[in-house]
Amino acid sequence: MAKHINTLQNTNTLSLSGTLTRRAFLKKTAAAGVALGVPSVMGRSLASYGARLPKTTLAMVTGNRVAATKKAIELLGGIKSFVSKGSRVVVKPNMSFPHPPQRATNTHYEVVATVAGLCMEAGAREVLVLDYPFNRPEPCLKLSGIRDACAKIKNVYTLAVVDEKFFRTVAVKQGRVLQQVKVIKDVLDCDVLINLPTAKSHTTTGVSLGMKGLMGLIWDRKYFHASVDINQAIADLSSAINVDLIVLDASRALVNGGPSGPGQVTEPRTIIAGTDPVAVDATAVTLAPWYGQNFSGAMVKHIVAAHEMGLGTLQEQDINMLKARV
């Protein structure tokens, strides 16, 4: 309980700074966090400063997925701590599969529409909901329900990016197996990037959560599978793409047969939000038994690889977990 109050105070401090630009604000908060020794939501930024990792804050909310999504973001200080007025937001759900929501292969459209709506309410200029589906794009956008759900919100665009001309090569400075990678231009040029993964099993990487989901933003996925250690490549990719917020949809989890299914779908009814990609994924691993077994984040190769690169925290005691039920 004390922990909870502590964080709420922290959250209040954060929301005072709404007039600053987001990035400047993040840096300042981070610096302040270090100076004051208070827990910060900015674990990711600090990691890149090379400071000792402080506690990272995650919100884990159980219940109705729309309410849980809203509550989780609210616990992190509200959408306005991430999205400032006039910004262009890219939201990256998983919409790679021409499957209806009950297959649990795509992020649930209600979660996508909720986050997109929050961004617009926060004054975003526009929200681009985009992915590079590896199936034919039209049925993916349609059957996932995401396009229809987002079409109801003004200035929210659901886009499938399917040609190399929409991608640009960026260097992976910290990369251990990747030197460069081709990423969707909109992702590189946007003001805010929100990752909206869904919780799935994966035949190659064990689980497919936030960091694995970023593979939907790159051009050459075959390279990851065939030419390098995919687990390390996922970690490398995470170091190159600056995600501002992760809202992980574990309202359902595809616990086997993933990523394309069909497989067994369980209902953790949970939304996890945070800014630390390692902590979010590591926490999500514990929400469901994968392939009938219980795992922790420390047992997933690509999550461990990302942790070892300093991209986030794995230890439970270093995570300031804000739990709620709606």
């Binding site: 035949t203 990487t205 047992m299 190769k301």
Partner: peptide, 10 residues
Amino acid sequence: SDVPAGFIVR
């Protein structure tokens, strides 16, 4: 033997 791919063997 029964640890799926992607997970670390303990």
